[in-house]
Amino acid sequence: MEFGLSEEQRGLAATIRTLLARRADSAAVRSATESGPGYDVGLWQTLCGQIGAAALAIPEKYDGAGFTLFETGIVMDELGRSLAPSPLLASVIAAEALLASEDEAARERLLPRIAAGSVATLAWQGPSTAAPGDEPVRAQADRLTGSVCHVLLGDASDVLLVAAETATGQALFEVAPSAVAWTSTPAMDTTLRLAVATFDDTPGVRLTGDAGAALRRAHLAGTAGVAALQLGCARRALEMTVDYAKTRVQFGRPIGSFQALKHRMADMLVQVETTRSVVWAAMYAVATGAPDAEELVHVAASYAGEALHDLAAETIQLHGGIAITWEHDAQMLFKRAHALGQLFGQPHQHRALLAL
């Protein structure tokens, strides 16, 4: 059976694409990365207020749109294509952790804020998110001590969830971002904002329920979300390269007319279309709770990460020297490809998990 987007989903993608074409061109992306929050606050408010991007996968009972994580993946795909920095990935990870928790009071208190556009993030040392500088976060009663590196948009967050070890096992805590000591972490990808969170007898409110299940869901959603961003970046790499090959003239003719380069761009197209198939399959499986969702997410993360790495390198090669200049978007795409590949595990790590 052929799998494709519904008319409503195609409309969502087209709306996001039109908005980003207008508000997230190359100059706007660079300006956003240099701003205080690290993203375009006005664009984020438009995405949330007019389109409901942060609310798509949140149930209507929590003021969400009542769709699924698959629709959120469509938005992430378009965001990846535009290279625009955005809080969406961080907020989705935190929202999915809350939805998988059993703390109804916390869901009723926090999910409407996330749906409305408050930036949320999750600080935890997961299986592929731990860093050498981490000091395990431990909780004594409702006080947290330790540190977590590489927290997405940590110092720009409005809602912060923290995973900590307690005397009875792992637990999730809600912590006021203003109570945390934040240290900004410069990233190779300037569109990615990371920070180190340091907790020193920091007060928190413990969430009830199985923290392990909530964190597994957050990791699954985060990995699938990164794959969707990688799909968008892969599409941008192909489009950018084909457009350049049509206009760059060498030996009196466009370089895109040379057979050898046609073959290379055809290979790029195959990688993009295959990436689309595996990412859509993974996002749909996660959204519907399919029994093979975890396996499909590992497949998508493995293939999308490696494909984007190859496509970004090919984009640099086919553009030539101009691609490594600060003024050209190819260098941004190349950095994004490498940065995304580090967030939730590298391709070889996902393949290793598939082999278990």
Rank of each mutant, 00 (worst) to 15 (best):
A90P: 01
P59W: 01
Q317S: 10
R138I: 10
M332Q: 08
R113I: 05
R193P: 00
L19K: 02
L88Y: 07
Q259Y: 15
W280V: 02
Q342S: 09
Q50F: 15
S31F: 13
R81Y: 12
P203C: 12
G80V: 02
D210W: 08
G305D: 01
K335L: 05
G320Y: 02
A224I: 01
M188N: 10
S184R: 11
E239C: 04
L43K: 00
D40Y: 05
R17H: 08
E295L: 13
E327L: 07
T168N: 11
S257L: 13
S26I: 09
V299S: 03
S82E: 05
G42A: 11
A57Q: 14
D201C: 08
T183H: 13
G341I: 05
D63R: 15
G64Q: 09
Q230P: 01
L144W: 03
V205Q: 14
I16W: 09
A27N: 06
S178W: 12
A106F: 09
G289I: 13
L354Y: 11
D292I: 03
A197Q: 07
H348I: 08
M76G: 00
T208K: 11
V41M: 06
S157V: 04
R253Y: 14
L161I: 08
L215Y: 09
A300M: 04
A54T: 08
A281I: 04
E174F: 06
S147V: 13
L231W: 06
G225P: 12
I74V: 15
D40F: 09
L354D: 10
A260S: 12
G252T: 08
A21T: 08
A352F: 14
Q50T: 07
D189N: 07
K335P: 02
T198H: 13
A287T: 07
A141F: 10
W326T: 09
I74L: 12
L353Y: 09
V180F: 03
Q45S: 13
A197N: 11
P87S: 06
P85D: 07
T185L: 11
A228K: 00
R10L: 15
G80T: 02
A156T: 04
M240H: 15
E327R: 05
G38M: 05
S128F: 12
T241E: 00
R30W: 03
Q45L: 09
A282L: 04
C149Q: 12
S35P: 06
W44Y: 08
A141M: 10
P87Y: 03
F199N: 01
L79K: 06
